[in-house]
């Protein structure tokens, strides 16, 4: 079924020329990025090679538990990346992030493969993993943006939150506006990309399908599904992650945690 021209190992090595070009620029302009370029290149090759062989194996045996385990593994690493990016002032967010990703990405991926695409069975590795992978990869940025905004605003607007608490608001009431800002921050990029798709960029999945010889009209249908599912998954992920994380900003006595409220 593959219509794409095969790339030989020699030709693949030619692509290294791009990295040599970047390395040259780093040396010439004293950017200090040489080491990162080498590590990045090695990791790209190794991680993708590993992924390729894992997919070969999983496609071959196509077992539900294995597909779902791999999906959970992808989410685990995504949650680690997001939790590392959000320096939550001493408030750990790994578990809220992991749980909200698992819940929302699982629901969206199931709806896409099982209900929209109607793959048989719904967890068929050839559909579920690439589509689910796109949900994870694109939505994790949304979640990081939402949580960064949540923690940033909690610090900036700490006085407003404490005012509302002191007037008898519960933590949810005291953070209504911040909650909305944080969720909005996560949703806006996926809405913006709906505006630009097909005009200012051809998305990666569509590119891949066209290279593989698929009918562009079929590729477009898949791409529409992907764009819409990303709006759903970023919304669901941001809403769940922000509501789980904002609970952790307060003590059971409905006080801002010291790390969030600063020292007084």
């Amino acid at each position: 079924m593959s219509g794409a021209v095969d790339i030989g190992y020699g030709q693949l090595a030619l692509a290294l020329g791009f990295v040599v070009l970047a390395g040259g620029a780093s040396l010439w302009l004293k950017l200090g990025l040489g080491r990162d370029l080498i590590v990045g290149t090695l990791r790209t090759v190794a991680q993708l090679a590993l992924m390729g062989y894992v997919l070969l194996y999983i496609f071959a045996i196509n077992q539900a538990w294995l597909v779902l385990l791999l999906f959970a593994g992808m989410i685990f690493f995504a949650a680690r990346i997001v939790a590392g990016r959000v320096k939550g002032k001493g408030v750990p967010v790994f578990w809220p992030v992991f749980l909200s990703m698992l819940l929302s990405y699982m629901v969206v991926s199931f709806l896409v493969t099982g209900v929209v695409v109607q793959a048989q069975p719904w967890w068929d590795a050839r559909y579920f993993l690439p589509l689910g992978g796109m949900v994870v990869g694109n939505s994790m940025n949304a979640m990081a943006l939402s949580l960064e905004r949540l923690f940033g605003e909690m610090t900036n607007r700490r006085d407003q939150v404490e005012l509302l608490l002191s007037l008898g608001a519960d933590p949810r009431e005291a953070t209504t506006a911040i909650n909305a800002d944080a969720i909005r921050a996560g949703m806006i990029p996926s809405i913006n990309s709906m505006m630009g798709v097909g005009l200012v960029f051809i998305p990666g999945m569509m590119t891949g399908q066209i290279l593989a010889g698929a009918d562009p009209l079929l590729a477009i249908k898949y791409q529409i599904v992907v764009m819409l599912m990303l709006v759903g998954s970023t919304t669901l992920g941001s809403v769940v992650a922000v509501s789980l994380a904002r609970r952790r900003l307060f003590t059971p006595a409905q006080q801002l945690r010291p790390g969030v409220s600063g020292t007084r």
Binding site: D159, E162, L163, L167, A169, A253, Q255
Partner: peptide, 15 residues
């Protein structure tokens, strides 16, 4: 209950 307490013990913050 913290909200009930805070309405009975009203705090006017410095700023």
């Amino acid at each position: 209950e913290p909200p009930q307490l805070r309405r009975r013990v009203g705090l006017l913050a410095q700023s």
